[in-house]
């Protein structure tokens, strides 16, 4: 599949944003914050990450001005559900920010924080389901896609929250989030390696004889393409560059995911330089997810390519 920059940016940024909002909601629910020192900057950063991500996704559309129509088909479409819950999350975020600024009662803040947690988690779930519901792409239509999205969103969100905690010098929050992020990054390596093992074992999805309604066991070779130039299908679904560099890029993802929690931990337990260390942690984490997301698209093969590159096995 063609790794469109708009969709990669969208899933990376909004994943981190909703991850951050999820952890912030939990932090508020745990009642550890008496003054909104951490919550307000975190809500602001979450808002920016999610909004930039959503705007990038709108840029993916052929007709961006019609984007509002996507809020109508939540009964059947994961994309529509995701759009709706993403916007609902933003509304909850704004309400929570107002409640914190106005010094609202504990109970009201708790309700909004819980709502934010649920909405952020649901948004990440819907994003993953857009991909995992697509049968013609075996690398996406499997049980590893949802945990992969969830754990990377949670890990990058935790990295962002620890950076913000270092910025506002909230030592207790910083230590807890740093430990959580260490666990999440380790888990994300496990999930991604399991995902890659799974997709490497499960092949093309459809055999050429079946795609052409021929008897099983027929050997098929294309000898004349249906068109002389590339078409939409080949540009959108025939992307093959990453197969060449796939191994190296996967190693880079694993390396970055292993390195990212180290500066985050350093930020939590060092006296000085916490902000710089936290920023390095965020940078490594975001870079890891960008490369991972690029591979997620570039290495995924759509079964329609069977019609173009059929080879006797």
């Amino acid at each position: 599949m063609h790794p469109a920059a708009s969709v990669i940016l969208f899933t990376t940024l909004s994943g981190a944003g909703y991850g951050l909002l999820f952890w912030l909601g939990l932090w508020l629910l745990a009642g550890r914050e008496t003054l909104p020192d951490l919550a307000l900057p975190a809500l602001a950063v979450g808002f920016v990450l999610v909004s930039v991500g959503l705007l990038a996704s709108v840029a993916h559309l052929g007709r961006p001005l019609r984007a509002w129509r996507a809020f109508s088909q939540w009964r059947s479409s994961w994309l529509s559900r995701e759009g709706m819950i993403a916007v609902i999350s933003l509304a909850i975020l704004v309400a929570l920010a107002f409640a914190l600024v106005a010094g609202a009662a504990r109970g009201r803040v708790d309700v909004l924080a819980l709502a934010l947690c649920v909405a952020a988690a649901l948004t990440i779930y819907c994003t993953a389901r857009i991909y995992s519901s697509l049968r013609p792409i075996p690398a996406w239509h499997n049980a590893w896609v949802l945990p992969g999205y969830a754990v990377l969103a949670a890990a990058t969100g935790a990295a962002w929250l620890s950076l913000l905690a270092a910025l506002v010098a909230q030592a207790e929050a910083l230590r807890m989030v740093a430990l959580a992020s260490l666990a999440l990054f380790v888990l994300s390596v496990v999930v991604k390696v399991a995902y890659w093992r799974h997709v490497d074992r499960h092949g093309a999805g459809v055999d050429a004889a079946s795609a052409l309604a021929l008897p099983a066991g027929s050997r098929v070779m294309p000898f004349e393409a249906p068109h002389t130039e590339a078409n939409f299908l080949l540009k959108e679904m025939g992307f093959a560059l990453a197969r060449k560099h796939g191994r190296r890029l996967r190693r880079i993802v694993v390396m970055l995911l292993c390195l990212a929690p180290l500066p985050v931990l350093a930020a939590a337990f060092l006296q000085a330089g916490g902000v710089l260390a936290g920023a390095i942690g965020v940078l490594l984490a975001m870079l890891a997810v960008l490369v991972e997301r690029w591979l997620f698209f570039a290495q995924a093969r759509h079964v329609v390519m069977t019609y173009y590159d059929a080879r006797p096995s």
Binding site: M1, H60, L61, G62, R63, P64, R66, A67, R69, A70, S77, L79, I130, L134, R135, P136, I137, V206, F232, L233, E236, M237, H302, V303, V304, Y307
Partner: peptide, 15 residues
């Protein structure tokens, strides 16, 4: 009313 999101093309195995 099509917004050109291309998801339908992704969902079609037959191109």
């Amino acid at each position: 009313t099509c917004i050109g999101c291309k998801l339908c093309a992704w969902a079609c195995p037959y191109g």
